[in-house]
Structure formats: C-alpha cells, structure tokens
Simulated scan of single mutants.
Amino acid sequence: MFRDRGVEIKTPSQIETMRAAGLVVGETLALLRASARAGMTTGELDALAAENIRAAGAKPSFLGYGHPPFPATICVSVNDEIVHGIPGDRVIAEGDIVSIDCGAIVDGWHGDAAVTIAVGEVPDEALELMRVTEESMWRGIAAAALGGHVGDISHAVQSYVRSQGDFGIVEDYTGHGIGSAMHQPPNVPNVGRPGRGTRLVEGLALAVEPMIVAGEPWSRTLEDDWTVATEDGSLSAHFENTFTLTGSGAWVLTALDGGKAKLAELGVPYGGH
C-alpha cells in the first residue's frame, strides 16, 4: 500500500520477507568482514558476496542498478571513498578501512546494509571515525518511535556525531525508504530537526546510513560515474541498517540478532521476534 508522496506501507507478511532478505545481507556482510584481508582484491570480496547471496536463493540488489548500470554485487569503498565504489582489481592493503554496502532481494523485497571494516592495524583516528559512524547509526534507529518523524532520526544522528568531535557529516547522500524497491521515499538525511518529515508508522521500513568523514564533508564523483570520494582526501566511514517499527519497538531487519543487543544497551524496546 502506498501513502502520500509514494511512501510504501508493508503488511506484516511483507516485513517478514524483508527480514529474510535482511538476514541474507547480514550474513553476507559477516562473511565479508571475516574474509577481508590485506592482499585481497575488492573484486574477490564481490565474488564472495555474489556466491553467498545466490546460494541463499536471493538476488543482489545492486547489480545492474541505475545509469550507467552498476556492474557488481556490492559497493566497496576504500579509505577516502565515501560510497558506491566499484569492486575490481584494487588490492586491499594493511591499514585500509573498507566500507562494504550490500543489498539483497527475496521474493521482490529488499534488504540493505553497510559496514566499514579495518584491515590489520589502522590508526586510532580511523578506528574512532568508524566507532562514531556506527554509533550514530544506532542512535538514529533508537530515536525512532511510532508517531514520531523521520527528522527525529536525522537529529539523533547529527547530534551524536557533533558531540564526538570535529567530524564531517556528508549531506549529499542520505538514508531512504526501502521495500519493493531498494530506494523509496522518504529520504532519511543525517542532519535534521526533530518533529519534521514523514511520520513513523507501522509497516514503514527505512535504511539509516550515516556517512561520516574525518575532514570536510564535500564530495566528488570519480570518472567511473559511481565512486564518490572526499574532496580533501580525508577518510570516510559508512554504516547502514534497514529497520522497521512494530507495536512493541524497533526491529533491525539486517542485523543478525534483529538489533536486540544494541537496542537493549541504548534502552530501546525491541520489536522483533
């Protein structure tokens, strides 16, 4: 069912199918996190992801997406690359931070999530950037409640990042609604004011994905028409989860435990099963 401005409201059974897609994404990202090492190419990570998604009976969301069509199963963005990096023959090096964005489709319904991983020993500044980015994503999800607004999520992400130091919040790219298509209304910005934007209701599914940089938040698109990098060459981190709200709380569809542990840590009711 579509509401005003194209916002798609899912039935409980459709949310269950999105959970199935989300588990494929979560399991694939766990595999890639465990497998990534110095000396591997980004293309090898992509091949692992493709095999895992297909073996689960799902389809990759990203392959063939957009214009020009995205040529791979996952996005792999290294160091100063923010999002949409195309996997290929780039060799991952000791000390790199690698952002991996993954989407999968089960019976026409999507899951979408991203992680940034450290390869070997990385500087403390990079680890802190990753920590702040991941925590801001969870703070955004934790701020969501039935009857609230998308701006509550945006404000929580922004407020947490600002409280942690002098980091840049990329505003040109946002989270999004998700369901029968990977990208749907409403946008979920990483800056905003509480009480603004689309109302949060049961059956709405959102992808929350802060992209935080160590320097200035300005970006440029590389010659491949996909990869987005920081203008100043500073490091970037990216975390994402797909979640929904039920009558009992938040349910993170792409987290293997549904987000139960982290939501409990933040004092937020868990809405999954």
Rank of each mutant, 00 (worst) to 15 (best):
A113V: 01
T133V: 10
G111V: 01
G66D: 08
Q158S: 05
E51S: 14
V83Y: 02
G147P: 04
A142S: 11
D124C: 04
G203K: 06
E171Y: 06
T227V: 08
V83T: 07
G85R: 06
F167T: 04
V7N: 00
A207R: 02
E223S: 15
G165C: 12
D96W: 05
V122T: 12
A72L: 03
P12C: 10
A214T: 03
G175L: 01
T11P: 11
S236K: 06
G233W: 07
G64H: 13
Y160I: 00
G258C: 10
G195W: 08
K260W: 11
A114Y: 06
H67G: 03
A93C: 12
M40Q: 10
G175Y: 01
G168P: 02
V24N: 05
T116Y: 06
E171F: 05
T174N: 09
S180Y: 07
I169H: 05
I53T: 02
T17H: 01
M211C: 10
V170Y: 06
G151C: 08
D172M: 07
N190M: 12
A30G: 11
E16V: 08
D124G: 13
H149N: 15
A72P: 00
V252D: 05
A144T: 11
P123C: 15
S136W: 04
G259Q: 08
G43S: 15
A113T: 00
C102M: 13
V170W: 05
V228K: 06
V213L: 12
I15V: 15
P185S: 06
P87I: 08
A237C: 13
V106A: 09
T230D: 06
D46C: 11
H155N: 14
N241M: 08
G249T: 13
